[in-house]
Simulated assay, not measured.
Amino acid sequence: MGLEAAGFDPVALFERNRHACAALRANRLGWRVLEMDLRDFVGQEHRYAYDVDLIAAGLPRVKSYAATSAPRTATSRNCSRRPYGWSRKYGQGLY
């Protein structure tokens, strides 16, 4: 959202979790959401990604001792995951 507010327009978002993909697709209709791991991305199959200005990613998901030893409840969730995204900056001559 911060990159969106800064004027970046997403070219593609990568997410492995199907529920997170569904939420992204429902909330951002114009965004290209790819349900895959970024490590499996083959650039030749996605020519639209050839001219990007920024590749942004969330931190890798690392389980802490507190997270693995804490009891899970029906309402607890891991909300730390963020989708990978490629963006183009529009304005200021970056295309």
Rank of each mutant, 00 (worst) to 15 (best):
G2P: 02
G2S: 06
L3S: 02
L3P: 03
A5Q: 12
D9M: 03
D9G: 01
D9F: 00
P10F: 05
P10R: 03
V11L: 04
A12S: 11
F14L: 01
E15F: 08
R16A: 08
H19E: 02
A20I: 07
A20L: 08
C21I: 02
L24S: 08
L24D: 05
L24Q: 05
R25C: 09
R25P: 07
A26W: 00
N27I: 07
R28S: 11
G30W: 06
W31F: 15
L34E: 13
R39G: 07
D40E: 13
D40T: 08
V42R: 04
R47K: 13
R47A: 15
Y48G: 09
Y48L: 05
A49Y: 00
Y50C: 00
Y50T: 08
Y50R: 00
Y50S: 04
V52T: 14
D53V: 06
L54H: 01
A56K: 01
A56P: 00
G58E: 06
G58L: 02
P60H: 13
V62R: 06
V62G: 08
S64A: 07
A66N: 08
S69T: 15
S69N: 13
P71L: 10
R72A: 15
T75Q: 07
T75H: 13
S76R: 07
C79L: 13
C79F: 14
R82I: 12
P83I: 05
G85Q: 03
G85H: 02
G85I: 03
Y90L: 01
L94E: 03
